[in-house]
Design a protein around this nucleic acid. Structure first.
Lengths: 242, 242
DNA sequence: AAGTGGTCTAGACCACTAT
DNA sequence: TAGTGGTCTAGACCACTTC
């Protein structure tokens, strides 16, 4: 069930983004919205939506009355915390060729934390998949995903090499919509340190998160651990007028 | 120079948010956009913009063809990393009555890191303000802000008790627009531990960030340290279609 | 005064969900 | 099939910056 017809807005966004990356705008100044709309044969609203997304990503900034400009500093940011989706992708953006090692892939009884996170009963079962992401044989990220066994349509076969969101679409017919993540600094314990190839007590970042599908149902409980010396996250924090 | 006339969109957003908080929608179902538009006497576009902001905040979720619903889980999230602006506010949301202690407030020669972050020359000067945020006499957050001395319009007087963004507006005529933040786990050193009232080597979270004004000029270099045992951050990570 | 982004309207049509 | 959110248009007027 593949859907996806890039919206006009996304096409416009991609088009402008490409011109930005290729440095096709003089002095980093992007043409007026009205001009872009006419050139591309779309309405100004469509152009504005596209520019709004680019602004949110940090690729451009706008000044009322003055114009729209390329944000050189914003373009440099990699590993944006708000946008991470697959760790393969994150590592690739860092210029590495990542590999993945499956450390565990089994169906077990749910533990207390996961049951609470996913709203399961004590005696429910979950599929636990533990993976290690490496770059040049150096471990960088350790993840553990827990998915309710009741969601699995097909219990057999090799499938653990898929990114978690692909797995959920493929084998559970659920589309991951967003995560609520807790950001936690930790000193790795013996097990984590061994898997990540560092000394016990080394400090790193971790996430504890719950992923929700389009119906706002929790579908995955995940914990991730990162080597701070190899991967560091950034984010753009904007003013909100609550 | 006070501007600010809440836009129609923001008024609509606040109105709907209030109804959500007061649990005025049956079964967590929010009325159709067309109905809201008619009831409030605004266009559907305005309603959609307002709902879009609420969705981004995690207060609601939408399902094409089905409707718009209250996101009970999303409403519970406090201390959203993307939305932090003042630490006083963060602590208040946690139910504390925060106090602030000024540990330093002086003009000094810039160091290498700050010069690079703010694009200053070697011999430039910066105003350094170090603050400790406490709840019930218990330290929670330690921050150090560095602002180019050249931005200061008024060098004298007491002003260090203002939140950094108010200070920048008041004394530098600059409006802080966004931060680019690096999220780093650390083991506190002797100095940090002493100020935060924990043992040396305690693990905590830290930010290193650069704040930009409306003209996209860097105006502040900040470092912050958090006690993980007292304050923990969460965030909503959404899918992006690149 | 001219030009630019910001807000808002009214309406059309499409994609998807529910029944 | 009816109802809902998603996309897009065309145009008006406002707020602000620049010259």
């Amino acid at each position: 069930m593949i859907t996806r017809n890039p919206s006009l807005t996304d096409q416009v966004k991609a088009h402008i983004k490409e011109q930005i990356v290729n440095d096709e705008f003089e002095d980093g100044r992007i043409p007026p919205e009205a001009a872009l709309a006419e050139d591309l044969g779309v309405s100004r609203t469509t152009v504005r939506d596209a520019l709004g997304k680019l602004e949110h990503e940090g690729a451009i900034y706008r000044k009322q009355g003055a114009g729209t400009f390329v944000n050189e500093a914003g373009l440099q940011i990699k590993s944006r915390l708000e946008e991470i989706w697959s760790y393969e992708q994150v590592l690739e953006e860092h210029g590495y060729t990542p590999s993945v090692k499956i450390l565990a892939d089994e169906i077990v009884s749910v533990n207390e934390d996961t049951a609470a996170a996913l709203g399961l009963a004590e005696d429910d079962e979950v599929l636990v998949v533990e993976k290690l992401f490496l770059e040049d044989n150096e471990p960088v990220v350790l993840t553990r995903n827990r998915i309710p066994a009741s969601l699995l349509e097909d219990a057999g076969g090799r499938h653990d090499d898929l990114p978690i969101y692909d797995f959920l679409e493929e084998y559970c017919d659920r589309r991951l919509s967003y995560y609520v993540s807790e950001v936690i600094p930790i000193a790795f314990n013996t097990d984590q340190a061994k898997k990540l190839g560092v000394r016990r007590g080394t400090v790193g970042l971790s996430f504890i998160e719950v992923g929700y599908d389009a119906d706002n149902e929790p579908v995955v409980h995940a914990t991730s651990y990162f080597r701070d010396d190899l991967l560091r996250f950034r984010m753009i924090r904007r003013r909100t007028n609550t």
